[in-house]
Amino acid sequence: MSRAVRGEWTKLRTVPGQLWTIPGLTAAMVAFTALIAAGARPDESGTLDPTALSQSGVYLAQAAAVLIAVAVVSSEYPRLMRTTLAANPRRGTVFTAKVVVVAAAALAAAVPAVVAALFAGREALSSYAQLPLHSGQLWRVTLGTAAYLVLVALLSAGVALVVRHAAAAVGTMLTLLYGPYLAVLIIKMPEHALHLVQKVSPMTAGLAVQTASGPGTAPLGPAAGISVLAGYAAAALAAGWVALRVRDA
């Protein structure tokens, strides 16, 4: 197993275009958070959530998490996967190694990204009242956002194993993440339908870790929301394992 993991990591880090997806996630998270926070103003009711705004860069950074997973999985199709399976015919080992590398790469990028974004957002919102740095709620939002990015990467890995084409995998994931959210913005829905979409959409459910910073502020609580996303990721990985197991490379 360790040899398989090293092999997957070597393939990721030796292709510059793929390796840059890791620091790209961190840079996107911090830069987008700083831009959104700098332009944030209280809404009509006079409320503003500095805690959620300090992690708002996740809306762009999740695209980099998708690219990390697709770089690990889909870059080998259609030719190099045969070489990989010839060198290591145990498909379960290959599958596990890819999942481990995707999770580790996403985590290595996400943790510094959310911490740096936290301080960038706090600096941009320094004129507003904010939670103290020792606040448990503040770090729940921050570390929950990191967990969200890792789960998005794992979901992307499962989708990439099923789709097997890099562009198609990226397109599928971006549609899955942003599609329901954009539909909610464009289509005027009844409140019950809106809440249903927010509960079942991977992005809006998973990001309950930061939007549900107080009672009643989102259709799902933080634990329930991240569980929905984890369920999507588990189902996608299961489908990806079946696809790798039964389909010709």
Score class of each variant (00 low, 15 high):
Leu133Asp: 14
His134Cys: 01
His134Gly: 14
Gly136Ile: 12
Gln137Ser: 15
Gln137Glu: 14
Trp139Asp: 09
Val141Trp: 08
Val141Tyr: 10
Thr145Gly: 07
Thr145His: 09
Thr145Cys: 13
Ala146Tyr: 13
Ala146Asn: 12
Ala147Arg: 02
Leu149Glu: 07
Val150Glu: 07
Leu151Lys: 11
Val152Asn: 09
Val152Cys: 03
Ala153Thr: 14
Leu155Glu: 10
Leu155His: 07
Ser156Gln: 14
Ser156Phe: 03
Ser156Lys: 13
Gly158Cys: 10
Ala160Ile: 03
Ala160Leu: 03
His165Ala: 13
Ala166Arg: 11
Ala169Gly: 10
Thr172His: 09
Leu174Ala: 05
Leu174Trp: 11
Leu174Ser: 01
Leu174Phe: 11
Gly179Ala: 12
Pro190Met: 02
Pro190Cys: 10
Glu191Leu: 09
His192Gln: 13
His195Asn: 15
Leu196Arg: 06
Val197Tyr: 00
Val200Ala: 10
Ser201Trp: 06
Thr204Asn: 02
Thr204His: 02
Leu207Lys: 01
Val209Glu: 03
Gln210Pro: 00
Ser213Lys: 00
Gly214Trp: 12
Gly214Ile: 05
Pro215His: 05
Pro215Asp: 05
Gly216Val: 08
Gly216Pro: 09
Gly216Tyr: 08
Ala218Gln: 11
Leu220Cys: 08
Leu220Asp: 03
Gly221Ala: 09
Ser227Lys: 02
Ala234His: 08
Ala234Tyr: 02
